[in-house]
Amino acid sequence: MPQTSIAQRKYSEIRKRAFENFINIRLFHFFIESPAIPEPNIDELIKLSVRKELYDLYARCHQMVSSLPVPDYPHIKIGELDKLYKNWYDKNTQHTSALENVFQEQHFFSKEEFIKFYGADEIDRSCTYCKVLESEIKKLAEHGWIKTKRHLTRGRTMELDRKDPFLPYTKDNVALCCYWCNNAKTDEFSIAEFERIGTAIHVIWTERLKKINKLKK
Rank of each mutant, 00 (worst) to 15 (best):
M1Q: 12
M1A: 12
S5V: 13
R9W: 08
R9L: 12
S12C: 06
E13P: 01
K16P: 02
E20P: 01
N21I: 02
F22R: 07
F22W: 13
I23C: 14
I23Q: 04
I25T: 14
R26M: 11
R26F: 09
R26K: 15
F28P: 11
H29N: 15
H29Q: 14
F30T: 09
I32T: 14
I32F: 12
I32S: 12
S34C: 15
E39N: 10
L45Y: 07
K47N: 15
L48P: 03
V50M: 14
K52C: 10
K52N: 13
E53P: 03
L57V: 12
L57P: 08
A59G: 08
R60F: 09
H62I: 02
S67H: 10
L68H: 09
P69T: 14
P69M: 10
D72C: 08
Y73A: 11
H75V: 06
K77G: 06
I78A: 03
I78Y: 06
E80K: 10
E80A: 11
D82I: 05
D82M: 05
L84I: 01
K86L: 10
K86D: 06
K86T: 09
N87T: 05
W88L: 03
W88N: 03
Y89P: 01
N92A: 03
Q94R: 10
Q94Y: 05
S97H: 04
A98P: 04
A98V: 07
L99P: 08
N101Q: 11
V102E: 14
F103M: 10
Q104N: 12
Q106R: 13
F108V: 06
S110E: 07
K111M: 13
E113F: 09
F114R: 05
K116D: 13
F117A: 13
A120N: 14
A120M: 08
D121A: 10
E122Q: 13
E122Y: 05
R125E: 03
S126N: 04
T128K: 04
Y129E: 00
C130F: 00
K131G: 00
V132H: 01
E134A: 09
E134H: 04
E134L: 06
S135F: 05
I137E: 02
K138P: 00
K139F: 01
L140K: 00
E142Q: 11
E142F: 00
W145R: 12
I146M: 02
K147L: 02
T148Q: 02
L152S: 09
T153H: 09
G155F: 01
R156F: 11
M158Q: 12
M158V: 07
L160K: 06
D161G: 03
K163W: 07
P165I: 12
P168C: 09
Y169R: 04
D172T: 13
V174W: 05
C181P: 00
C181L: 01
N182S: 01
A184M: 03
K185Y: 00
K185A: 04
D187M: 04
D187A: 08
E188P: 00
F189A: 05
S190R: 08
S190I: 07
I191E: 14
A192P: 06
E193A: 13
R196Q: 09
G198E: 02
A200E: 04
H202N: 06
W205K: 01
K211H: 12
K211T: 09
I212V: 13
N213Q: 14
K214S: 15
K216E: 15
K217R: 15
K217D: 15
K217H: 15
